Structures are given as C-alpha cells and as structure tokens.
Computed example of a mutant assay.
Amino acid sequence: MHTLIEHYRCRLIGLDLAHVWRGYGSAIFLEFGELRERTHRNGEPRSPGGEFGVMIQWSWRIERDNSILCGSSNDDSLWEPIFFGLKNAKAIELQLFGQLAEIAIGLSNGHRIVSFMTADGDPQWTLFDRSSKPDRWLCVRDGKVLEERST
C-alpha cells in the first residue's frame, strides 16, 4: 500500500486547488490542477474535473491551525466562504491515517481537509488521478485501500 499511496501523493503535491464543489448531501469535491469541462451522459454540463480530484462523501472537516473552520455537520451556509478561501492554495501533503484509512490533505494556506467516518461501513473518500489514461482512483472497500481503473 505504501507504494500505491506514494503514486497519488506525487500526483497531487504541488497542484493548485482550482475548484471546490458540493455533491449530493454533504459530499464535497476538490478539483486540483488544470480543469476540464465535463458533461453528463445526456449532454448536460456538470462541474469541471481537475487533473486530480478528491471526493469525501460525508464526515469531513476543514481545519486551520488549532481550530475547525467547518465540517459536514455544520449548516451548509458556512461552507461556501470557507470553500472560497481554499481556492488556489497548493496541495502540500496527502496522508492516510487510522486503522481504517482516512485521508488528510494539507494546503499551502495552512488549511487541512480531513475525512473521519462516523457511521458503520468504510470511510467514504476517493482520490481520482485523471492525469493519465486510463483514469485511476483510490478508495476503501471492506476496510482495505484499493485502486480501481476506468475501462
């Protein structure tokens, strides 16, 4: 697993956070690097995707120094100003931590985005490497970190 996470760390570190968007419920998406336009299967536009993406479905927080700025349990009206403050910061760290792997992403502006699942099942995060073909992603299934690839 060490080599696998190193691949994703090397792809992410140094990229600018270009776009932050909200998915369904409290899911957040972080898009790093050059953005590409994307469409749904029906042709409708969707949020652009970066060279590298992060999805945290729920149970996440954004930290700065010694405080939590906001998290998935906060009223979502607090999220947009915090998301805006993240844009254009560079990714400087990617860590996996805990018995069941959670992620922490450090940014050049001192912020950290951290996952921390609080419900049964697996941690609900995915790292997307779209910088080469086929696209590949890292996630947790049945308590194990694994990589999948598009076909």
Results as ranks from 00 to 15, higher is better:
His2Asn: 14
Thr3Leu: 11
Ile5Phe: 09
Ile5Arg: 01
Tyr8Cys: 05
Cys10Met: 11
Cys10Arg: 15
Arg11Pro: 00
Asp16Gly: 05
His19Val: 08
Val20Tyr: 04
Trp21Met: 12
Trp21Asp: 14
Trp21Tyr: 15
Arg22Gln: 15
Gly23Tyr: 02
Gly25Tyr: 02
Ser26Tyr: 04
Ser26Asn: 08
Ala27Met: 14
Phe29Ala: 00
Phe32Asn: 01
Arg38Ser: 05
Thr39Pro: 07
Glu44Asp: 15
Glu44Gly: 07
Pro48Ile: 10
Gly49Glu: 14
Glu51Val: 08
Val54Cys: 12
Gln57Val: 13
Gln57Met: 07
Ser59Met: 02
Arg61Phe: 05
Arg61Leu: 08
Ile62Cys: 09
Asp65Ala: 15
Ser67Leu: 10
Ile68Pro: 00
Ile68Tyr: 00
Leu69Thr: 09
Cys70Thr: 15
Gly71Leu: 06
Ser72Lys: 00
Ser72Gly: 01
Ser73Asp: 12
Asp76His: 07
Trp79Lys: 03
Glu80Phe: 02
Glu80Tyr: 00
Pro81Val: 04
Phe83Tyr: 08
Gly85Tyr: 03
Gly85Lys: 06
Leu86Pro: 00
Asn88Arg: 14
Glu93Pro: 00
Leu94Gly: 10
Gln95Val: 08
Gln95Pro: 00
Gln95Arg: 10
Leu96Lys: 07
Phe97Asp: 09
Gly98Val: 02
Gln99Phe: 13
Gln99Asp: 14
Leu100Arg: 11
Ala101Cys: 10
Glu102Pro: 07
Ile103Trp: 03
Ala104Gln: 15
Ile105Asp: 01
Ile105Cys: 08
Ile105Pro: 02
Asn109Gln: 11
Val114Arg: 10
Phe116Tyr: 13
Phe116Asp: 10
Thr118Tyr: 02
Ala119Ser: 12
Asp120Thr: 12
Asp120Lys: 12
Asp120Gly: 13
Pro123Ser: 08
Thr126Tyr: 10
Thr126Arg: 05
Asp129Asn: 04
Arg130Tyr: 15
Ser131Arg: 12
Ser132Leu: 13
Trp137Ser: 09
Trp137Arg: 01
Cys139Leu: 13
Val140Pro: 01
Gly143Asn: 07
Lys144Phe: 03
Glu147His: 02
Glu148Lys: 04
